[in-house]
């Protein structure tokens, strides 16, 4: 009989303790960020899709060694380059990223010993078309130059 009533009492007490906690939380300020209206800055190491890094003149630093292409686990990167007449170094003519297959592992950036590719801080990528995610990075770089 005593156990019966102590159980009821302790049970009720535990319920009131719980309600006390939620009561306290009720008056605390909100912790969320109202996303489309406010945004957070991405941290320095955030890994977005890759982007070509320009040199001082705005041309790609890439030397077309193709290491990133080889390092990529999902064959996202396809690049090509050719030697301009009279030039010494190969110049990049095509750098496509198939972002639909990319898993943002960063192997390509790591494999690049020239610092020619880097992560962008873009995260707000949404589209209904698949083609929108096949990036022509060279073109993007030229657009940025302008």
């Amino acid at each position: 009989m005593v156990a019966y009533f102590t159980e009821i009492f302790n049970g009720l007490l535990s319920l009131f303790i719980g309600m006390g906690i939620t009561f306290k939380e009720f008056f605390k300020p909100t912790v969320t960020v109202a996303y489309p209206y406010e945004t957070l800055t991405m941290c320095a190491r955030y890994r977005g899709h890759i982007e070509l890094v320009p040199d001082e003149e705005g041309n790609p630093k890439c030397v077309v060694c193709g290491l990133c292409e080889k390092a990529c686990p999902s064959d996202c990167i396809s690049l090509a380059g050719e030697k301009p007449e009279g030039g010494k170094k190969k110049e990049l003519t095509k750098y496509n990223l198939d972002f639909t297959r990319c898993s943002l592992c960063g192997s390509c950036v790591e494999s690049c010993s020239f610092g020619a590719i880097d992560f962008s801080k873009e995260y707000n990528l949404a589209s209904t078309r698949k083609e929108d995610f096949i990036f022509n990075l060279l073109q993007r770089l030229e657009e940025k130059k302008k």
């Binding site: 941290c43 320095a44 190491r45 955030y46 890994r47 943002l104 592992c105 960063g106 192997s107 992560f119």
Partner: peptide
């Protein structure tokens, strides 16, 4: 973890 690894869930 994001500040160090660069991603929030699928770290590499």
């Amino acid at each position: 973890l994001e500040a160090v690894t660069g991603s929030r869930l699928t770290y590499c």
